[in-house]
Design a protein around this nucleic acid. Structure first.
Lengths: 102, 102
DNA sequence: CTTTCACATCAGTGGCCGCTGATGCGATTG
DNA sequence: CAATCGCATCAGCGGCCACTGATGTGAAAG
């Protein structure tokens, strides 16, 4: 079956800062303060990006006193990985499958 | 090892029309005329997107008389799939790995 | 209640990028 | 040669989006 890749999810992950956030969260669960320190970006900027990631289902939030922890959702990335793997596998057999010139 | 995902490649693939092209090329090798017919986009538009895909190493070109065939490069997508799979796997162990509140 | 903190939301702005029409280039045909 | 075809390139324009500062919200502490 050919489940094409989700464009919206790709657009979400195609941003440098968002991908940076995702990479950081892949190592450990962090709160915004940590991300500000790690990336050097402004708090407002990060908050906006985290909102995008949250709405796209890439991250989950967990309030903890004053802080809010952000946790990465592995299923989301795993699904994307599977779709690209499937696409790559399909491409291997498509190489010799030329459609005739019109 | 943690090889982070290539942002530039992501940006290239995050465009709806380009992803459409990639999906089509994953099934069979096509030339621009075919892609114009399949997508309904203008030739100029497609040519621009194909240029981006070519420069990003996503596709290869093969001249054939008047036509130019576009072939998908599986390694490119496979590498992306691996990186996301690695990220997802790392995220699974990172869920319980909270950094302390500052 | 007031203060202080982390974080979210909002409107404004600047820059990037996708789309377009016009045009150029190389290959093929007669 | 000239005509025709597929495709690439270019400048211009318009819309989207990332970033910002100001401000709002809710929780914890005194």
């Amino acid at each position: 079956m050919m489940t094409s890749v989700d464009t919206d999810l790709m657009r979400v992950l195609a941003d440098p800062l968002r991908l940076r956030i995702v990479t950081l969260l892949a190592r450990e669960t962090l709160c915004t303060t940590h991300l500000v320190a790690e990336t050097g970006a402004r708090q407002t900027n990060l908050s906006n990006h985290l909102r995008v990631l949250r709405e796209a289902g890439v991250v989950d939030t967990e309030p903890c006193g004053w802080f809010t922890y952000y946790r990465l959702r592995p299923e989301c990335l795993a699904q994307l990985a599977d779709q690209f793997a499937e696409l790559a596998e399909s491409a291997r057999t498509a190489a010799d499958n030329k459609r005739a010139c019109p």
